[in-house]
Amino acid sequence: MYDLLLLLVLLALGYGFGQYAERRHYRSIVEREARLNALPAIASRYPPAEPHYQHALVTGSTVVSVDYFKRFLAALRNLFGGRVTSYESLLDRARRESLLRMKQQARTLGAVMVFNVKYETASISKGAGKTIGSVEVLAYGTALIPTPSR
């Protein structure tokens, strides 16, 4: 009985805090994306040759962990199969946050765009039984910084 109560409390806490954080985060993401839209992140490996740019590696990394509610939902999904929607929004946030951090770094360097942008994902708790699952999402690319014209 107490186990069930504890489970419900944990679920309620996970849901409450998780949803609150997610809504806040999305608001911040949308707002910053609009602000950094002037600095495009391009997947192409071939940067424009002209004018001449200085190159620099820029990275943005986010580590996300899953709340109790999302985890419970995903565990239930394990029984029936289908889209694990509770993780989808979490990873969507992590990808966009990483890209934003990368762009922020590029802007700090004075870059006008980032080329050859790629993502990497690494599981931190991989295979470690009952630990909290967390993943890192890393976005990286080549920042093009305009050189003063000679």
């Binding site: 849901y15 949803q19 939902l73 999904r77 889209r83 929607t85 989808e88 929004s89």
Partner: peptide
């Protein structure tokens, strides 16, 4: 990339 289905609704179903 995300679903707009309410998480509580999904929770109830599952």
């Amino acid at each position: 990339n995300t679903s707009d289905r309410h998480p509580l609704k999904e929770f109830a179903t599952l």
